[in-house]
Nucleic acid binder design. Structure first.
Lengths: 250, 250
DNA sequence: CGTTGAGTTGACCATCGTCAACAGGAGTGG
DNA sequence: CCACTCCTGTTGACGATGGTCAACTCAACG
């Protein structure tokens, strides 16, 4: 298998582009993703305390947000856009371990080195915290820590489900699981629309599902031929959501 | 693929066998796994408080310790033996999501329903906590919560590594990763011996690695033929640990 | 209008799954 | 003690799923 060559992995590792004036202190009170993030556990006063630690930062598509094995110095809360998270093997093989959308935290594991690479798929804005001050804030806010704890537990659950998907399912089932799962995650923002935005490339999907780009493409084409989905620009529309849910359930 | 038939999955779901006299209040102070578990974050006084909540329970091989989707009413700290953790698909396909050894907690995710099944591979003893009182204890011990948080973060990392193993590696590499990873985990108990105990069946290994039992068997036979390992009763001995580590690293 | 990169499709093939037979050990009962 | 079953594990033959390689379309962009 020629993994090492399959993608140049050109990623912009330049300094994160902090957008213009939004430098210090973020308006957490009116944050769009507050109800969907652990910040919901904080009252207005506490959220203000946290907002002092936050810096708004934004990233262009393909820009690196964190790099595997580098010193972990920040925690990020995505407020807009989509991010891919992946791990690399020394020989260049890549496994995408997840995609982050608004409300998701990156770097929650609190290890001293980043456990994955993260880079922006679209234009991304994020709330950036210094790791130490964030950690210190945690120690003063057990309720918040508790919320983060639950969030990591949830991520662990997702990771285990992903293990099931990769380990015990056929190519077509994996693609269906992916689409259905992504739709569920977007639901809180678009009200459960049957149109699933796919800001990532086929290669990203393939690396997430443990497949090749060709197999993903074939599976999507087959579903489209069977009129279960329609491919639209930057996404797909599910024509038979119920049937797809059944397949995904196993 | 005929998954549904591949294993009857006969598991003893009877009442956990609480061993004889060890009923209420456990001797946490002299617990063998204390240094390897989050309890290490507690001082003697705090550990005594926790010990009041604990009940020693033990399980026979193949006995169920928790069942997926059932109400989660307890948290377990394994003190002796080995446990397999797995998820089931409705059609009977199974994905083993991990193996627990002494020092590992089960049911840490704090969801109201168990996210996986757990059953004993060997005779197992465990410290059992009522979920509510454990949760209440957490609220009084932020340092302990913090330790658990780190532990779940570590598990998340392992799960993501497992995704890489299942998604991007060949059958033989997966088996090598499994052996090397398991050796690392046993190291704190046996000083890094090159003999890796395998209390689980080939089927369990296969379901962990997203392979079939035959493929696992062939991979092990091949490694043995190449004199990289020797198969011993209930385990393997690594003859070329360095070479195997290289393969596992990728 | 040529270039580049994403995506699709086809032909071929290798890895791993399937099916089957068999070996060896544990437990059971005569 | 042996015969028998049951279970785990091993090995072989074969085939299907999905990977590999290649050609092609199409849109974006200079």
């Amino acid at each position: 298998m020629n993994y090492a060559a399959h993608e140049p992995l050109v990623v912009d590792r330049s300094i994160p582009g902090v957008c213009g004036h939004a430098s210090h202190g973020v308006d957490c009170l009116h944050c769009k993703v507050r109800p969907f993030s652990p910040c919901a556990a904080l009252d207005d006063r506490e959220v203000l305390e946290l907002s002092v630690l936050a810096r708004a930062s934004c990233y262009a598509p393909r820009q690196a947000m964190m790099t595997q094995d580098e010193h972990a110095d920040s925690v990020l809360n995505v407020t807009e856009g989509a991010v891919r998270l992946y791990r690399l093997l020394p020989d260049g093989r890549r496994q995408v371990v997840g995609f982050a959308i608004p409300g998701d935290f990156l770097g929650l594991s609190m290890t001293d080195r980043n456990v994955y690479c993260a880079d922006a798929l679209t234009a991304v804005t994020a709330c950036k915290f210094n790791r130490e001050s964030f950690s210190a804030f945690l120690d003063t806010q057990p309720a918040f820590l508790r919320k983060l704890y639950d969030m990591v537990g949830h991520e662990l659950r997702l990771a285990q489900e992903q293990m099931v998907i990769i380990g015990r399912r056929t190519a077509e089932e994996r693609v269906v699981c992916f689409l259905v799962g992504l739709r569920r995650r977007w639901a809180k923002f678009n009200g459960g629309s049957v149109t699933v935005p796919l800001p990532m490339t086929r290669q990203d999907i393939a690396d997430f599902l443990g497949l090749t780009i060709e197999t993903v493409s074939r599976a999507i084409s087959k579903l489209a031929r069977e009129k279960a989905i329609v491919v639209v620009p930057d996404g797909v529309r599910l024509l038979e959501p119920a049937r797809l849910e059944d397949i995904a359930a196993g």
